[in-house]
Simulated scan of single mutants.
Amino acid sequence: MTPVVRLRSVVLDCPDPRALAEFYAALLGGTPQGEEGDDDWYVLHVPGGTRLAFQRSEGFTPPEWPRADRNAQQFHLDLDAGVTWAEVDVAHERALALGARPLQVAEREKLDFAVYADPAGHPFCLCRIADG
């Protein structure tokens, strides 16, 4: 089937677009770009991946994971963190050092992923790439 459109960006609302763009740049690579004099919008071209954009949202309230009754997560990012648990451990430590907060890491071996919140509170998963 011929697509009608192409995905341009995944846009995350947040209180500080530059800071969140820098967090994801440190985690995924790339360089955040903003318009001169405009701190309300930053774009990150992830090498070999999708463009992430960050826009200021006054009064932003982060999602609460895993609550579904109020302010539920609207989406999350799944990030490949490595094939071995040693590689995932390195990604885990780096994510924490950058300001990520663990939400669900206890059953990661069973699930093949662990859940974190970025500095603005959006959930993301560090996933182990399954063999084969």
Rank of each mutant, 00 (worst) to 15 (best):
V90Y: 02
A114E: 15
E64W: 06
E107Q: 12
G48M: 06
R51S: 08
D16Q: 09
V88P: 03
A100P: 07
G132Q: 09
R108C: 03
W41H: 15
A120T: 10
T61I: 10
A95E: 00
V11K: 11
G121C: 05
H92D: 05
G59F: 01
G132N: 08
D16I: 02
A95D: 00
Y42V: 07
H122S: 05
Q55G: 10
K110G: 00
G37N: 11
C125F: 07
N71G: 09
A91T: 01
E58K: 09
D69F: 05
D80A: 12
L103V: 09
D112H: 13
H92G: 00
V4I: 11
A53E: 13
L79A: 05
E93S: 08
V4H: 07
R18D: 14
V10F: 12
P102Y: 06
V4E: 11
Q73R: 06
P3D: 14
R56V: 06
Q55D: 07
E35S: 09
C127W: 04
F113G: 00
H122C: 06
A91W: 04
V83A: 08
L7N: 09
T84M: 02
L44Y: 11
P119D: 08
W41I: 10
G82N: 00
G34H: 08
F54A: 12
L27G: 03
A53Q: 13
R6V: 13
S9E: 14
R56T: 07
A19F: 10
V11A: 15
G59W: 02
G59Y: 03
V43E: 13
T50Q: 13
H122E: 08
M1D: 12
E93Q: 13
Q33T: 14
G82S: 00
R128T: 04
R51I: 13
W65E: 07
V115I: 08
P66L: 03
I129T: 12
R128P: 02
Y116L: 13
D118L: 15
H45E: 11
A114N: 00
E35I: 09
L103R: 06
L27W: 01
E64T: 10
T61W: 02
P123V: 02
H122Q: 06
K110N: 01
W85Q: 01
L12F: 15
P63H: 01
R108F: 03
P17F: 08
E87C: 00
L111Q: 13
T31N: 11
C125H: 05
R101A: 12
F60T: 02
V46H: 14
L103K: 03
N71T: 01
G132K: 06
L44Q: 13
G37V: 10
L20T: 05
V10P: 02
V4Q: 15
R101H: 14
L12H: 05
E22S: 09
Y42M: 11
H92V: 00
R70S: 13
E58D: 14
W85T: 01
P63N: 01
D80G: 12
A117S: 08
G49A: 13
V10C: 15
A68V: 08
R108E: 07
T84Y: 01
R56E: 09
L20F: 06
A130I: 06
V88I: 08
A114R: 04
P3I: 10
G30E: 10
D112V: 05
R8P: 02
F23A: 04
G30I: 15
T61R: 10
A81Q: 07
F124L: 02
